[in-house]
Design a binder for these strands. Structure first.
Lengths: 244, 244
DNA sequence: CAGTATCCATTTCGATACTG
DNA sequence: CAGTATCGAAATGGATACTG
């Protein structure tokens, strides 16, 4: 068996062997976030196939990181964390914070509207929202597939995400370019300014329109200082190239 | 491009994309430890080929994690850390600590004597050692390849590791089973007790023999609490199988 | 829904040989 | 020493089809 495992007792090698496979950290992260069902995790991990997710969950279970409880009434299982898995929480957080701080911006092809919608549905400030049902429609432009629409339905403190028109009347419609939307989400742009300047538009009743920025909590990592040296260098180089 | 990259702006996905490839964390860890030369890193990362190390170093350089300075007098380069790379230090430490705490023990095939020797040469307490040259010979039994010999040569605060007899007279000869030696190194067994009970033997002048346990600093992670639930379970099951 | 089995394209990596 | 180029073997992972 040529290159399976690092063949070492070194603790870092052991940890890396089990955790540094494609999507594994993302899967654990979703379970840490509280996702319990297969498809819930599946939606929360970008571009993972059911085949791979299934395999990852099995391995993580055998490695003692997650638990799997078959459900009584329904088919399927509920996934949860073991102590070992829970111990990874702060490590994964610091990993993500590092990514926020040091990663380059992505190309447009990497700005997946579906994943932005999924992220938003996990970070809606339901405490600030009305008791009644609120239906928000998001329309992102500028992505590879042209226009992408999603609906978030908030009710009784619970938020659902729909890929198709959910049948309920839409209360708010938010439209904008996917790149600007992602940048606002990540905290690189000020959402209120984007709205005030009309680059992201909000349609609907005045009270809802006004409240919207308080409903969207944005990415949990917006506070992290950003330091991507190459980009400012690239920007300077580009600027020189233009002016020079 | 089927499955290259996760195609996401998610900070955790971005971090994982760059860092969660085979051996990448180990390579960065060696540079964090202060290794600067290609072969030095190569020896410190278990089972990495020159091809792969070369590729990893290039990627890490382009990703802005490590620096590479061509040397003036000699061939080759000196590798170092950027701010982004240095920022990973505490994260990699916590990763390794997690591995120490939660990983299962390894099979004998994974107990590589060469890597144990390499590890020891980085953790010799040179301040406690004589000014004069000290040559230690290690003879590990019980590994796949039968007997494995290594020499550590300490002089003037510097420690070298030799895979062949270095020509100098040997001051101390340490012999023992590779599994017990690794377990003592990792802090799972008490080194002094292993020596006292004759499972690890030390030959040489009395003062050196007595001082040896103070010279070997052991793994930097020996203090981490160990919690591997499955192993006690496995042990119980095995015990049941034997007795039942 | 919640997965699993199979097949195949793509990718990864080590061994070997080679260079200055 | 400090790598790089090439090649083939091994592993990975997506698509598809399938199940209860």
């Amino acid at each position: 068996m040529p290159y399976k495992g690092y063949g070492q007792y070194c603790p870092l090698a052991l940890a890396a062997e089990g955790l540094c496979e494609r999507s594994t950290l993302l899967v654990i992260s979703r379970v840490i976030d509280g996702c319990t069902r297969f498809n819930e995790i599946n939606r929360g991990v970008p571009k993972i196939s059911a085949t791979l997710l299934s395999q990852r969950l099995s391995r993580l279970e055998h490695a003692g990181l997650i638990t799997r409880l078959p459900l009584e009434n329904e088919r399927g299982s509920a996934y949860g964390l073991t102590d070992a898995g829970r111990d990874l929480d702060p490590i994964i957080m610091s990993f993500a914070a590092w990514g926020q701080k040091w990663s380059r911006n992505r190309e447009t092809e990497d700005l997946d509207p579906a994943f932005l919608a999924w992220s938003m549905h996990t970070r809606l400030n339901v405490d600030a929202m009305p008791e009644t049902r609120v239906v928000m429609e998001f329309a992102f432009t500028g992505s590879q597939k042209g226009l992408s629409r999603f609906w978030l339905v908030a009710q009784n403190g619970h938020v659902g995400m729909c890929l198709k028109y959910p049948g309920y009347d839409t209360d708010l419609t938010i439209s904008g370019d996917i790149r600007r939307s992602v940048e606002a989400w990540r905290g690189f742009r000020d959402l209120r300014r984007e709205i005030a300047d009309g680059r992201i538009t909000v349609e609907g009743p005045e009270p809802y329109r006004r409240a919207l920025p308080d409903w969207l909590l944005l990415s949990a990592l917006t506070g992290i200082e950003r330091r991507v040296g190459d980009e400012s260098r690239d920007a300077r180089a580009a600027s020189l190239a233009r002016t020079g």
